[in-house]
């Protein structure tokens, strides 16, 4: 496959970026999108040009490190996958592919296509945990959990924190991410102790960092590589309202 790539290049956070066009020839349709970028970068290095910076790690679709806004969609033109799992057979020979970084005020560009997503980590630090208890190993059946609830909690916990929900949302809202991280605990008995503090702190942090307000377009759910359901957002809204209205503890 021969392709034209229109890639956002930006030297650093302060620099003014711009799109640059690159031609890549002889790309295998069976290669992944990131492998195609590797081919481009090798050719750039050969020409002693600066390679295109992009985030990646496991390349198995489980780490949440890769990003890229490809032809108007986070993680490109396929459903329920990360960019590393996107294959070139999803594109046509001779196509022009536009590649942009995630765009959100809380995700500043570090270089080229790499953005700083530590805002998501800050939300987790604000309350997305259960305080560890010490002592002996508890019996596996000491706390009973229904299969239904454990499955829902596991589905919520499958969020890899890639930020595609923020990138897809017209409001750059992080509600799907935060709601998944709230739900994975709210659904389990172990998460009950801190649930009121947790949801209030995480929502406050999300707002403080400058993520947008949710307007229920559900673009997040459509682009989530892990197909996290927006029912988690409704759950978080319930948890948040309940905590705001009835919690006696000031957070």
């Amino acid at each position: 496959m021969d392709l034209t790539l229109k890639i956002w290049r930006q030297e650093n956070a302060q620099a003014k970026g711009e799109f640059k066009n690159y031609q890549v020839k002889g790309v295998s349709k069976d290669s992944s999108f990131l492998e195609m970028l590797d081919v481009l970068n090798e050719s750039l290095v050969d020409k002693i040009e600066s390679p295109v910076c992009f985030d990646h790690d496991c390349r198995e679709g489980i780490c949440g490190m890769c990003s890229l806004y490809i032809n108007g969609r986070p993680h490109g033109p396929d459903d329920a996958i990360t960019t590393c799992q996107l294959h070139m057979r999803k594109f046509k020979n001779g196509e022009t592919i536009t590649v942009e970084p995630w765009r959100a005020k809380p995700f500043p560009v570090i270089k080229d296509l790499v953005v700083d997503r530590s805002a998501l980590d800050e939300i987790i630090q604000s309350g997305g945990y259960t305080s560890a208890s010490t002592g002996g190993v508890p019996d596996a059946n000491a706390i009973l959990i229904s299969k239904y609830d454990s499955d829902l909690a596991m589905d919520a916990a499958s969020c890899i924190g890639c930020g595609a929900c923020v990138a897809a949302c017209k409001n750059a809202s992080a509600m799907l991410f935060v709601s998944a991280k709230v739900s994975q605990f709210a659904l389990l008995p172990q998460g009950q102790v801190e649930k009121e503090r947790r949801v209030q702190k995480m929502v406050a942090k999300m707002d403080e960092l400058g993520f947008g307000n949710c307007t229920n377009t559900y673009a997040c759910e459509m682009e989530c590589p892990k197909e996290i359901s927006v029912s988690n957002i409704a759950r978080m809204n319930r948890e948040f309202l309940g905590a705001k209205l009835f919690s006696r503890e000031t957070v």
């Binding site: 806004y69 942009e100 765009r103 005020k105 809380p106 500043p108 409001n171 750059a172 809202s173």
Partner: peptide, 9 residues
């Protein structure tokens, strides 16, 4: 919340 630069595509 989108920031200063929007999506070109």
């Amino acid at each position: 919340s989108r920031g200063n630069i929007g999506y070109k595509s």
